[in-house]
Design a binder for these strands. Structure first.
Lengths: 147, 147
DNA sequence: GTAGATGCAAATGTTTTGCAACTAG
DNA sequence: CTAGTTGCAAAACATTTGCATCTAC
């Protein structure tokens, strides 16, 4: 009820078309609302409609990136996509030990964003920001051994 | 005069060996002091010594990552490596329009780090943090057209 | 001498591309 | 109808791996 509209609007503006495949990819991203690989999107789309090609998934993901509706991050050596949509940018802490992602609310990072704006004239558009570190549990468990 | 020592120490500790190839890779990383691809490291190493294989470069980069002497980030779809060494973690703003990297000093981001520690018990070990956005110049130039 | 490291070449896995057939507008 | 989109298959690309040879210790 929002990303879809935006997607359609941007498609129209540039003379592109809304195809079932494109709709499905967007829907999937909306459903999972997390970081997914192209392969995962492909798997899910395949479940909906027997024949969508993975190249189409890649092409759609690229399109969505161009439209700033989707962001990409590399997690653990894999390229992962995520809907930015109208949910606005958000952020994560990633534990290097157990790989969990902890979500942080935008307001927690707001001061930083403002500071970068003021000091560097830099407008953070971060669709996605990942801070690497070690979570509480792993800090406790680790205390000595790596991995 | 520092990373080298640390590298050697960690190698010894784990029963690994210091080879000319490993030394060269580390030297290169020290020289460029920026984000480089494995390919770029390979090119430079090749200039020094005619025959070092790219697989050795990859293997060495992985080793350096294990030792926390090197960090990886994905920039513009490419995996890039950077010496963390004893320079400590540092951070960048990346302009999505012109791809420039603006370095930010650790102290600018210190409050955020402390906050994450307090609120989420999360120890940020970020060897490298990249914030995406649009730099001042590109904001001015853009004002209307994307890309 | 021996365990570990290297170079080579082949394998892997992901992402991209060319093209004829198809379809949204 | 027509330009844009798709599926397919092949290509391109970066990264990893097996193995015989070599070498740091």
């Amino acid at each position: 009820m929002c990303c879809q509209q935006e997607f359609l609007k941007q498609l129209r503006e540039r003379g592109f078309r809304l195809t079932p495949q494109r709709e499905m990819v967007l829907d999937i991203l909306h459903d999972v609302s997390g970081h997914v690989t192209a392969e995962e999107v492909y798997d899910r789309v395949s479940r909906l409609s027997s024949c969508v090609d993975i190249s189409t998934v890649y092409r759609t993901l690229e399109l969505l990136q161009d439209f700033h509706l989707v962001g990409v991050v590399e997690i653990d050596g894999q390229r992962r996509y995520e809907l930015l949509g109208l949910h606005g940018p958000h952020f994560h802490l990633r534990c290097n030990a157990c790989n969990q992602l902890v979500r942080i609310e935008p307001n927690e990072i707001q001061p930083l964003i403002e500071q970068m704006q003021q000091r560097h004239g830099f407008q953070i558009a971060a669709g996605d920001l990942i801070l690497d570190g070690v979570c509480r549990e792993c800090q406790t468990n680790q205390s000595g051994g790596t991995a």
